[in-house]
């Protein structure tokens, strides 16, 4: 075997394995994205189950649709908008951060900050007295 041919095979080998790795890693991240998205979606035909965990027809169809859109290069936000336009916000287990859910999202953090501010003020006040 001459050197040129050897090189050619080597390059070909590297190329194939490289493309294989890229293929695997890209499908890997696609799968991760799919899991990440479906873990926060409600299976509409089940009881309080996520689409990720469910094996129902509905969930499988949504999984396929999301996979298709991911392959098209759609972003997570676009996919979530697509689904919530059709099925309503009910399908999202993570409530959107918008005007109507503002109270829901801010309540715990505002309350805990306020409580700690009051606590701090009282402690320092008491300290000054003693």
């Amino acid at each position: 075997m001459n050197k040129k041919l050897k090189n050619y095979y080597l390059i070909k080998k590297i190329f194939i394995s490289a493309s294989f790795i890229i293929l695997i890693s890209s499908s890997h991240t696609l799968e991760n994205n799919l899991a990440e998205i479906t873990k926060e979606l409600r299976c509409m035909t089940c009881q309080n189950q996520t689409i990720y965990e469910s094996e129902s027809d509905f969930s499988n169809q949504i999984k396929n649709e999301i996979m298709r859109q991911l392959k098209e290069g759609k972003s997570k936000k676009q996919i979530i908008d697509f689904l919530s336009y059709r099925y309503g916000e009910y399908i999202l287990f993570r409530p959107q951060f918008d005007k109507k859910n503002l109270f829901l999202w801010l309540f715990p953090f505002v309350l805990i900050s306020a409580a700690f501010v009051i606590l701090f003020v009282r402690i320092t006040k008491n300290r000054r007295h003693t």
Binding site: M44, T45, Q61, R86, Y87, G88
Partner: peptide, 12 residues
Amino acid sequence: DGKVAMDFGVYG
């Protein structure tokens, strides 16, 4: 394939 149903938000 259920494509129309999905656009109509049909699930059951």
